[in-house]
């Protein structure tokens, strides 16, 4: 019985909010469990968004430190995942701004409008064949997709990644990015048009 009881008390069996209570109190076990639970999605998001391993590491660490620093203002009833992504997105934007000031990178034009509709753009694509079967061709496609994503304005890139990979709802994205839901929709729309147009331009419009 006692053995079962102790197993139930381990960090991995606790809910996020139970863990957060321990996290706030400085428990190393809670730190390890929360970092462990969210490390992969958070790291993958930052790698895709920033694409610079050294900055990604820095932002990753800052995100969890900020979670601890803002422990007194955190509403324990709120789900942890969107809150972590909110911090990470803010920290990533700060890192990009710092880099821009240092003149080492450009965060791109913060575009929010695209005149074409999604239909206008997708209808000009000639083929549905998007997954090359050969490994070499797939690697080449991956490199080109990365290039298009890298050149996208930061605000469009982050919303596209949050919607496609993290599958946050409009409401959650609005909270994460501190923008109204209407802006989330229009920005996501712009991001899709932008990505598709640039992809088409890079590939001469022959294939997706």
């Amino acid at each position: 019985m006692s053995q079962t009881g102790s197993t139930m008390d381990t960090a991995e069996n606790k809910t996020d909010s139970q863990l957060l209570a321990d996290y706030i109190n400085g428990s190393e076990e809670a730190f390890r469990e929360i970092v462990g639970r969210y490390k992969d999605p958070l790291y993958a998001f930052l790698r895709r968004l920033l694409n610079q391993p050294n900055i990604v590491d820095e932002v990753f660490q800052e995100t969890f430190l900020q979670l601890y620093q803002s422990r007194e203002t955190f509403d324990m009833e709120r789900p942890l995942r969107p809150w972590l992504f909110t911090i990470a997105a803010n920290k990533a934007r700060d890192a990009l701004r710092r880099q821009q000031r240092a003149g080492t990178t450009s965060i791109g034009t913060m575009g929010d409008t695209e005149e074409l509709s999604i239909e206008d753009v997708v209808s000009t694509l000639k083929s549905y064949q998007i997954t090359p079967y050969e490994d070499a061709a797939r690697a080449e496609t991956a490199a080109r997709v990365r290039q298009v994503i890298e050149k996208m304005p930061a605000n469009l890139k982050e919303i596209l990644l949050l919607a496609y990979f993290e599958q946050f709802s409009y409401k959650q994205m609005a909270a994460i990015l501190s923008i109204p839901i209407g802006t989330v929709k229009s920005r996501l729309h712009t991001a899709i048009v932008h990505f598709t147009k640039k992809w088409k331009a890079m590939n001469g419009g022959n294939n997706l």
Binding site: K39, D40, A44, D57, F60, Q61, F64, A142, T196, W199
Partner: peptide
């Protein structure tokens, strides 16, 4: 069009980063 994004690899977090983060915390 959107499935092209699947080509962006799913990077898993390196273990040393977890250790550093926990140590800093």
């Amino acid at each position: 069009s959107m499935s092209l994004l699947d080509h962006l690899n799913d990077h898993s977090c390196p273990e040393h980063l977890v250790e550093t983060t926990v140590a800093k915390l």
